[in-house]
C-alpha cells in the first residue's frame, strides 16, 4: 500500500530526512516511532502529498506523490500533528464544509455520526475558536475519517487527549484494522504501539533504523535470562551447582531471585526446570525476562 524508497528531504539549511525506506502492506497497522525532531512529521507530510520530497520515491496507494497535481488525489485520510480549523466556524459547519469536497449533498447523518464518535456531539454547534487542544484533536480525527478512506495517516493521534480519548483512539485503530484499512500512525506512547501495531518503524535523525513486524522485533530482543524464585531462598551451594549445568553461562542471586543467563532459551530452560524438579525444589515463579518496547527503542536509537 505504501512504498517509500530512499526518501530525502532538505529544508533550506537542514537535511531532515536522509534516506527513509518503508513498506506498509494493505491492512497493516504501522507504528512510526522516533525521538522528537527525528523526522516523523516530515515523512508523514510527504506521504500525505502536502510536501515535496527532495529525492527518493514515495508511492501511496497506487500513486507516486511527486506525480500528483493535488494532495487529495491520494485518497487518504490525514490527521496533521497540529490540526488547524477556522475559529469562526462551528464543528458541524467545518465537517459540512469538508464533506462537500467529495460529495454534493450534505450528509447530516454522517457528520453527526462522526461527531458523536469522537465525543463532540454536545459541542457540535460551538465555534472551534473556543475549543480546547484535545477537542480540536478529536475534531481532527473526525475530519481524517470523514471520507472513509482506505489509507489513514495519523500524526500523533493521541497527543493532548485524556485517558479515555487515548483508549478511544486505540479502539478506533483496531476498528479500522477490522474494516481492512491500512493505518500509519506516529506516537510517543510505546505501549500503544505494543497494543495495536502489526509493524513498527523506528526512525532516528532522518534515517529508518529498524523496520520489522512487532512480534519479530520483540522476539529478537528477548534477553536469554530466566528469573527464578524458589520457595526457600537459594544458598551459595545451589547457585554454584546451577552454574555447572550445561548451557548456563552465569547465575546471580540478588534479593532471593536467581537470574540464570542461558545460551539456548528453549533447551536450557527445560534443563533448568528439570533440575529443580529433580531436586524437589518448590518453584514460586519461573520466567523468561522480557524486554519491553521502551528498552528496545532506547537500545535501537542509541545503539546503532
Amino acid at each position: 500500500m505504501i512504498q517509500v524508497t530512499e526518501l530525502h528531504k532538505k529544508f533550506k539549511t537542514f537535511h531532515a530526512l536522509k534516506g527513509i525506506t518503508m513498506h506498509v502492506k494493505k491492512g497493516e497497522i504501522y507504528g512510526f516511532i522516533g525521538k522528537n525532531g527525528s523526522g516523523k512529521s516530515t515523512t508523514m507530510n510527504i506521504l500525505a502529498g502536502l510536501s515535496h520530497p527532495s529525492s527518493g520515491k514515495c508511492i501511496v496507494g497506487e500513486k507516486d506523490v511527486s506525480k500528483i497535481d493535488h494532495p487529495s488525489e491520494l485518497n487518504i485520510g490525514y490527521l496533521p500533528e497540529d490540526p488547524k480549523f477556522y475559529p469562526w466556524m462551528s464543528a458541524f459547519e467545518i465537517l459540512d464544509y469538508l464533506v462537500s469536497a467529495k460529495s454534493n449533498r450534505t450528509n447530516k447523518g454522517r457528520i453527526n455520526e462522526m461527531l458523536s464518535w469522537v465525543g463532540l456531539e454536545d459541542a457540535a454547534q460551538r465555534h472551534v475558536g473556543g475549543f480546547s487542544r484535545g477537542m480540536k484533536q478529536r475534531l481532527g480525527i473526525a475530519t481524517a475519517l470523514i471520507h472513509n478512506p482506505e489509507i489513514v495517516i495519523l500524526d500523533e493521534p493521541s497527543s493532548a487527549l485524556d485517558p479515555e480519548g487515548r483508549s478511544d483512539v486505540l479502539r478506533l485503530i483496531t476498528d479500522l484494522k477490522q474494516m481492512g484499512k491500512t493505518v500509519v500512525f506516529s506516537t510517543h506512547i510505546l505501549s500503544d504501539v505494543q497494543k495495536v501495531c502489526d509493524k513498527v518503524g523506528i526512525i532516528a535523525t532522518g534515517r529508518m533504523i529498524t523496520e520489522k513486524p512487532l512480534s519479530e522485533l520483540i522476539k529478537e530482543n528477548i534477553v536469554p535470562i530466566y528469573d527464578i524464585k524458589l520457595k526457600l531462598p537459594a544458598d551459595t551451594e545451589l547457585t554454584e551447582k546451577i552454574k555447572e549445568l550445561e548451557g548456563i553461562t552465569r547465575v546471580e542471586n540478588i534479593n532471593d531471585m536467581l537470574s540464570a543467563t542461558v545460551t539456548d532459551t528453549d533447551k536450557d530452560g527445560v534443563r533448568l526446570m528439570q533440575y529443580f524438579t529433580d531436586q524437589k525444589l518448590a518453584i514460586r515463579s519461573f520466567e523468561l525476562r522480557k524486554n519491553n518496547l521502551e528498552d528496545i527503542f532506547i537500545q535501537e536509537v542509541n545503539g546503532k
Binding site: 494532495p71 487529495s72 488547524k84 477556522y86
Partner: peptide, 15 residues
Amino acid sequence: RENTLVLPICSGKQF
C-alpha cells in the same frame, strides 16, 4: 500561514 487550508485541501477542495 496558519495552515487552516491543510484540512480542506486534504479533504479534496480544489485550489
